[in-house]
Design a protein around this nucleic acid. Structure first.
Lengths: 313, 313
DNA sequence: GATAGTTACGGTAGTCGTAACTATC
DNA sequence: GATAGTTACGACTACCGTAACTATC
């Protein structure tokens, strides 16, 4: 058994059991891949892949187990290389962050600025996507960390660490009557056309839940994945907006009024997600601590090694 | 990088940084090991081992990280072989259980009997030791599962699953006056010489705690690791015994009387411990379920993959 | 007939073992 | 001087690539 064989198995299954394609992506010959897989199967004593004659068409049950373990091994080998990078080039490297618009636009700028000041030689990459996509990016190795609020509880291979809590506010054009409402109620909000987040995003489910709990049917006329888009349409008078509190900036959003709505919706928790058995560069820990000061390196390591997905914060 | 190199690193560190010894244990030549380690170090870009001139004397900080990952990889490779065994020889194999005397003698017999009936081709091995030793055996790969009650919370690499709860009883010679005490109190117990478990064992700390909580100083005249030894001395009139409730058998222990003491001590939880990222043979899951029916395969797998050490039971 | 995988075979690289050498204790 | 590790070198193995062959769709 050797690492190459595991790599081959992984790549073949990743390419839909097409050996030729896998070989190409590995910059090697098809017969080589074929043979090595045969050898591994011989050594283990069973077939990893299902075959119709010569063609590979699927994976066997034991093969599935092999694949799972192989993936972990390959990830670990990658981790070893990372260790190398870390100790030869402590302060240079790449940090790839996958996150949602709201985080990228309102929560991260300060953190990123400070991070770049401290680690000028680290190339920072910001990827955007839905909470789901963001998690997939980490799972696929495309990103190192995910930052999102929703739908990121159900990945076994991700460790999710709570970073901060936040709630929503209602925004409306300056002279809109809702700005006089005190206290602000869900009933009042439900009277107006609403512009808010797309259903896959940024705690949108909390919003639905709140209205549902009161038997209200909010009139959502427009959804977006982007707080700025929402603000734009609110400014145009198309409706009132429900956005993350941190997305309202009294200076930048002079044309809009804001009412805090923390008492109306459940708080949302934004979490950071990392691959369970990843080995992280020093500056990744630094970034996490900048973003969530209550998560120093030791806490994160603990969560990675032992842990449940929520170290009881 | 290849698996052999990782194996070499692991073995060298295991043999106190003695390359020659490591080579011998790997049935290969010393220069080969030396060279491969050099090659790996070269590839990673740093030294894994600390050297005084040519002699290896320790491990560097990055080396420590490499070693940790290497261990995981090697364990996974082993897991792969296990998968092979499992699917080619589903019902034959070896199951090595490390446990304490009390479990082996009073909790396991029925389970073992049933297990052997169902898996006649599995060679069962029972190892005994203190809770600590038992855990070490699993960590070193000597045993597959650990079963114990105490001191097994603080191993990061072990997943501990609660199996059953139990408490203690007081035993004494048939005519001993304490047998008339009702209700039985700690104060009453403290009046007599006590024979009970050694301090490293079987929930002994719960006993200490109970007396301490009442400001009592129990007169422990003799400790043992073995319920049968305790019963023997109690039978000889050397004192009263505090043993696990399940260790008293009215038939076998005719000469002794028993008073339940569940109301005096905190209950103890016996747990089963397995290596966090182990791949387990099917019959290991079967054994666990026989021992703790509330832990079917799926629960155990869940705990192994994701989980905290205590899946909230 | 086109696409996909296996068998066959030769070249090459890398690993292993022995032997000679060098350094540490 | 004894023990431990490195360098040097030769043998062998096993992996890779090309080419020819075979099977599936």
């Amino acid at each position: 058994m050797n690492l190459q064989q595991l790599r081959y198995v992984f790549e073949v299954s990743r390419h839909g059991y097409n050996v030729s394609e896998a070989a190409e992506s590995l910059f090697t010959s098809q017969p080589g891949v074929s043979k090595q897989i045969r050898l591994l199967e011989e050594e283990l004593g069973f077939e990893i892949f299902e075959r119709h004659g010569k063609r590979l068409v699927g994976i066997t049950e034991p093969g599935r187990q092999v694949l799972a373990i192989a993936e972990r091994v390959l990830r670990d080998v990658d981790n070893l290389r990372q260790v190398g990078e870390e100790f030869t080039n402590e302060s240079r490297g790449r940090l790839s962050i996958a996150t949602t618009h709201t985080q990228a636009r309102y929560a991260l700028p300060k953190v990123v600025q400070e991070f770049l000041r401290r680690y000028p030689a680290v190339r920072l990459e910001l990827h955007q996507g839905s909470p789901r996509q963001v998690c997939e990016m980490v799972l696929s190795g495309e990103a190192d960390v995910a930052i999102a609020t929703e739908a990121i509880a159900d990945y076994d291979d991700l460790v999710m660490l709570p970073c901060y809590q936040w709630n929503r506010c209602v925004i409306a054009p300056q002279k809109h009557p809702i700005l006089q409402a005190k206290p602000l109620t869900l009933e009042e909000i439900a009277r107006w056309p609403i512009i808010t987040y797309d259903s896959a995003f940024t705690g949108r489910s909390q919003i639905n839940k709140a209205f549902l709990g009161r038997g209200l049917k909010p009139n959502v006329v427009l959804t977006a994945i982007d707080s700025d888009v929402i603000k734009t349409y609110v400014g145009m008078g198309l409706g009132i907006g429900i956005v993350a509190r941190m997305a309202y900036d009294p200076l930048a959003d002079k044309g809009l009024g804001m009412l805090d709505a923390a008492h109306l919706f459940e708080t949302s928790t934004t979490r950071i997600g990392i691959l369970r058995n990843a080995w992280l560069r020093g500056y990744v820990y630094a970034f996490i601590e900048l973003f969530a000061p209550h998560l120093p390196r030791r806490m994160v390591e603990l969560a990675l090694a032992g842990g449940g997905s929520d170290p009881g914060l």
